[in-house]
Structure formats: structure tokens, C-alpha cells
Computed example of a mutant assay.
Amino acid sequence: MLPFGLHDQAGRPQHVAIQVIDVTAQRALERDRQQHLVELDERATALQRANAQVHDFMAMLSHDVRTPLTTVVTFGEVLLDDWDGVVEQDKQLYVQRMTAAGHRAAGLVTEVLTLAQLDAGALVARPLRLDIAHAVREAVTTHTATNGQPIAATAPDETIGLADPAHLQLIIGNLLGNATKYGAPPVEVVVVNDKDHIRVEVRDAGEGVPDEFVPHLFDRFTRAGRGVATTKPGTGLGLYLVARLAEAGGLDISYTPNQPHGGRFVLRVPRDGRRGQPAAAHARADHFPVQ
């Protein structure tokens, strides 16, 4: 509002004119402009984060996938070129290394495919009534057959919980793989019946997770900057997938130091209070291979 006055010769005001300007639309446009700038900044930040994840993903593929494939190709070519000249003991050693590399590559493919399904929202948990102790023993047997590292499993006779069978196998398999890779013997799994859930603990006697890294343990593409993790190959995806799959299925995963040393991952599976036989652990055919 802008006043404008008319005065006489003595300077006394005779008339006053007032002009009213409606700036409502201008202020609305300015608010919209500011909101648009905020949204653009948020999108730019999201794009930068996505680009960083793509960079990390490509770096992982170029190294961690190529390495086991190179092992398979190298020893395969040696055997093909000089089968008769290679002694029997070396043949077995080469085949063992090729097999181990093949399992590693298969595990990486599983992680990548699972990650893609999670990002696309296509991986939906379908919880069933399961004997959790049986599922744990099954995962331990598979892990031992693949890696040759014995793991002790302790569980009560009846532990009926609600979980997706395939997801549970992948979660436990990744926890076992993490314990044997970064921890130290003895590695053990303990299943406990609690009041409203079943607790699955995967323990090892290694050096444990560095304190400063614990808050980032389940983040995507993250690895500890010191300790045993710096000496082992890895994608930084395993525990991220564990956390995401647990969340999708209504489970809970956490980490605490083991006593007197080492690491302890605790998976909590909701209990099912109904009586009767559990659903078959093989009710679905889309089980993921475990590493």
C-alpha cells in the first residue's frame, strides 16, 4: 500500500491517494520457486548418491566377480593344455580351487540378483511356520559341504517360528559365511526359545567388529577400514542383504561383541504359538544358494 498526498501552499494535506497492490500471487510464485529449488537440491543429492552406489557396484563387479572367474579359467587352461603332465595330486588341487572359485562366483551372482530384486521391490517375503532349528541345521550342513569348515549347532527340539524359508536360508548362510571368513574358530550357532520369539545366535572367536564400524555394519557397500576385513575380498553386500531380508520378513538382526572376544550376530524370529506340525521347510522351490 503506497500513500500519496496533495498539499496546499501552507503545506497542509488536502487530499490523500492510496494505491493498494495485491502481491498474493507473487508471494505464492516465490514460495513455489523456493519449494522447487529445494526439490531440485534433494533430487541432485539423490542422484549423486545413486551415482556413487553405481560406481561402487561397478568396482565390485570388476574385481570381486573377475577374480574367481580368472581362477576357474586359469586352472582350467592348465589342465586342458597339459592334462597328462599334471600329477594327480595337483589335478585334485586345481579342481578344488576351481570349485571354490565357482562357489564364490555363484554367491556373488546371488547377492547381485537379490540386491536387484530388493531395489525393484520385487522380493516379497512369504512367512511360513517353520522349525527354525531344522532350518539352521540345514544351513550349517550346506555351509560345511561348500566350505569344509565345521560349525557346531545347538538347538532345542521344537522351535516353531514364522519366516520365509528361502530368505531364512540366505540370512543364516550369509551370517555363517561372515563368521568363518572374518572370525576365527570355534564358530557356533545357538538357537534359543524366548517368550515371543526364537533367537538364533551366530558366534565366532575372532577379533570382532571395530567399534567405530558397528553403526555402519549393515550399510550398503561398506567394509571396515581396519582389522581382518582389509585382508579379505568382499563386496560389502552380505550383511546389507541380511538386514534388508530380515526387515522384509518381520525378523530382527543385531550385532554385539562376543565374550571374551569375537563377534555375535543375533537373529530374532517371531514365534508361532499354534500347536501342530510346522510347514515343510521345502514348501517353496526358489531357495537361494548360500555361500
Rank of each mutant, 00 (worst) to 15 (best):
Gly5Ala: 09
Ile21Met: 12
Ile21Asn: 13
Asp22Ile: 04
Leu29Lys: 12
Leu29Trp: 11
Arg33Ile: 07
Arg33Glu: 13
Arg33Ser: 15
Glu39Gln: 09
Thr45Gly: 04
Thr45Glu: 13
Ala46Leu: 14
His55Arg: 05
Leu61Gly: 09
Asp64Pro: 01
Val65Trp: 00
Val73Phe: 09
Leu79Lys: 03
Trp83Leu: 14
Val86Leu: 12
Val87Arg: 08
Val87Pro: 06
Met98Arg: 00
Gly102Phe: 05
Arg104Ile: 08
Gly107Gln: 03
Leu108His: 09
Leu108Arg: 07
Val112Ala: 12
Leu113Pro: 00
Leu115Gly: 07
Leu123Ile: 05
Ala125His: 01
Arg126Ser: 05
Pro127Met: 14
Leu128Gly: 11
Arg129His: 10
Arg129Pro: 07
Ala133Tyr: 00
Ala133Ile: 00
His134Glu: 11
Arg137Glu: 15
Thr141Phe: 04
Asn147Lys: 08
Gln149Arg: 08
Gln149His: 04
Ala153Leu: 10
Asp157Met: 03
Asp164Glu: 11
Asn174Val: 05
Leu175Arg: 15
Gly177Gln: 07
Lys181Asp: 15
Pro186Cys: 07
Val189Tyr: 03
Val191Ser: 02
Val192Glu: 15
His197Ile: 01
Ile198His: 07
Val202Glu: 00
Val202Cys: 00
Ala205Gln: 09
Asp211His: 02
Val214Asp: 03
Pro215Leu: 05
Phe218Ser: 13
Gly227Cys: 03
Thr231Ala: 12
Pro233Gln: 08
Gly236Trp: 02
Leu237Met: 11
Leu239Gln: 11
Ala243Ser: 15
Leu245Glu: 10
Ala246Trp: 04
Ala246Leu: 08
Gly249Gln: 04
Ile253Ser: 00
Asn258Leu: 06
Gln259Val: 10
Pro260Asp: 06
His261Gln: 15
Gly262Val: 02
Arg271Phe: 08
Asp272Asn: 06
Gly273Val: 02
Gln277Arg: 12
Ala281Phe: 05
His282Gly: 05
His282Asn: 15
His282Val: 10
Ala283Val: 14
Phe288Gln: 06
Pro289Phe: 03
Pro289Arg: 07
Gln291Ile: 10
